[in-house]
């Protein structure tokens, strides 16, 4: 049995939405180099939709694949949907991750949430009512 699913390997080998968005509307960075994983997400938001998303990741294969899959799941979606992205959804979309790699999907969820928080900080009027 392979370490990772074909889906994980596909997203690792051909990561989607890699790179940087200049003048992004929201930027989130989570993780730390000491633990071996850092994810950085850049969001472009138009009309309350994620019009573009890019990522940069320092990390293992599943961290790269999780970042890539997370960007795919939110690209073109309304911000409120993106806010609800869960690590479970990321892991499921990847056809599963080994147990000890689940934290990679958690990082992806946190990176997106952190980028959205950044967007709300800059645009408080957009923040939905609690």
């Amino acid at each position: 049995m392979a370490l990772y699913s074909e889906k994980v390997m596909d997203h690792f080998r051909n990561p989607r939405n890699v790179g940087v968005i200049e003048n992004a509307d929201g930027i989130g960075e989570v993780g730390n180099a000491k633990c071996g994983d850092i994810m950085k997400m850049y969001l472009k938001i138009d009309d309350d939709c994620i019009s573009d998303v890019k990522f940069e990741t320092f990390g293992c294969g599943s961290a790269i694949a999780s970042s890539s899959m997370a960007t795919e799941l939110i690209k073109g979606r309304p911000v409120r949907e993106a806010m609800q992205l869960t690590n479970k959804a990321v892991a499921e979309a990847l056809d599963g991750l080994p147990d000890y790699k689940m934290h990679c999907s958690v990082l992806a969820e946190e990176a997106i949430r952190s980028a959205l928080e950044d967007y709300y900080r800059k645009n408080p009027e957009k923040r939905p009512e609690a």
Binding site: M9, F12, R13, C35, G36, D37, F58, G59, C60, G61, A63, I64, Y100, K101
Partner: peptide, 29 residues
Amino acid sequence: GIEGESLLLLLDDRGISASSGSACTSGSL
């Protein structure tokens, strides 16, 4: 600036079997 496990996976794709001292290859933090 890079992490070892992803390096190993890329090398494996190119037919090279190697190893790393990265936490991600050991299952520990």
